[in-house]
């Protein structure tokens, strides 16, 4: 494992040749283990109710935004719309509200999603093992849960109240999800929230621990950059494109077989150029507003974050093919559902 000094030396180094060298190494490893394929998924936001107060997030409970929670009928309309684009892997998201979006609500959403998609992941509040197990049995294949920052002091500063302010409960959530049988687990840090090098090292350590403890899980990493919501400034540092690029290369070099996601928070130029360097999974045709695909397409509400790449799933698939990548839509089907 790299030391903190080595990571800092790489991230802060202004030598262009070093960046090129990292990219070459990362590209070669990615090609070896993933070939020329990119898996695609699309997020559906089910609810923006939230009982936590995270200073950087547009959904936080202190923000005076219109709160929406999709009904079963509304979810189905959203799912039908996304499914029509050919997407098979869906990521269902909610704000972190145990009251507004309890386990039963999530299970109902998963049951609906099964009719439209072959892979279902959830990005919701952290839960207990038994609850994850129920979700797994219902047909959930993967859990996405970002620690945001591994700096526990900084964590307290930005997660002011609600369940999310419990650092340890969140930290141990991936392990509980793995114990419950989840097949895919995505970890991540919110870049800009704290010291990037320190967070990256802790993320690597966390992943290394997970790989040793639950080797059967397929892990992925995400590196979202903090975007400002409503003009407020919450970032501690600005993570520029070069730093993000190096972080993705370092993740690939240190974890050759781990998936790396890139969301539509990143602009077209970054996304197109990061293809094949380390990224193996991209969101496509994303809308980060609740009901944004069919129910409230007019953007009558605040999204969780601003999308920088608004190309449709169809356009992304065409781009991938033009660049010599096979867009992978079907990469798993929940065999639990066949029982």
């Amino acid at each position: 494992m790299l030391t903190i000094k080595e990571i800092k030396n790489i991230l802060l180094n202004s030598d262009r040749l070093l960046t090129e060298k990292l990219a070459g190494e990362a590209k070669s490893i990615t090609e070896q283990f993933f070939g020329r394929t990119i898996s695609l998924y699309t997020p559906i936001y089910l609810s923006n109710y939230c009982s936590s107060h995270c200073t950087y997030c547009g959904f936080n409970s202190h923000n005076k935004i219109k709160r929406i929670k999709l009904s079963l009928e509304e979810m189905r309309r959203e799912m039908e719309k996304v499914s029509a684009t050919g997407i098979e892997h869906i990521l269902l998201l909610t704000g972190e509200s145990y009251e507004a979006t309890p386990l039963e609500y999530l299970k109902a959403a998963v049951n609906a999603a099964k009719e439209y998609f072959s892979v279902i992941s959830l990005e919701v509040h952290p839960m207990e093992t038994a609850e994850y197990r129920e979700l797994f049995s219902s047909g959930v294949d993967g859990i996405t849960i970002y620690q945001e920052t591994y700096d526990s002091i900084r964590y307290k500063e930005v997660h002011l109240s609600g369940k999310k302010s419990d650092y340890n409960f969140r930290l141990n959530a991936p392990e509980r999800a793995a114990a419950a049988g989840m097949r895919y687990i995505t970890l991540g840090i919110l870049l800009g929230l704290s010291d990037a090098a320190e967070d990256l090292l802790e993320l690597f350590r966390h992943l290394e621990y997970m790989e040793k403890t639950y080797p059967g899980v397929e892990y992925s990493l995400s590196f979202p950059r903090l975007r400002n919501i409503k003009g407020k400034e919450f970032a501690r540092s600005d993570i520029d494109d070069i730093t993000l690029f190096k972080i993705i290369c370092l993740a690939r070099i240190n974890f050759p077989r781990v998936g790396i996601n890139l969301s539509t928070r990143e602009n077209q130029n970054m996304r197109d150029n990061l293809l094949g360097i380390g990224v193996t999974r991209m969101s496509a045709g994303s809308n980060t507003s609740v009901g944004g695909y069919d129910i409230n397409p007019a953007n009558s509400q605040e999204p969780q974050f601003d999308i920088k790449d608004s190309r449709s799933a169809e356009a992304i698939m065409a781009l991938l093919k033009a660049k010599g990548f096979d867009p992978i839509l079907t990469d798993w089907r929940s065999i639990n559902r066949q029982q």
Binding site: G86, E88, I328, L329, T330, D331, R333
Partner: peptide, 11 residues
């Protein structure tokens, strides 16, 4: 791999 076959033939 069966995981890569779209049984419903969407794609």
């Amino acid at each position: 791999a069966l995981r890569r076959i779209d049984l419903e033939r969407h794609e």
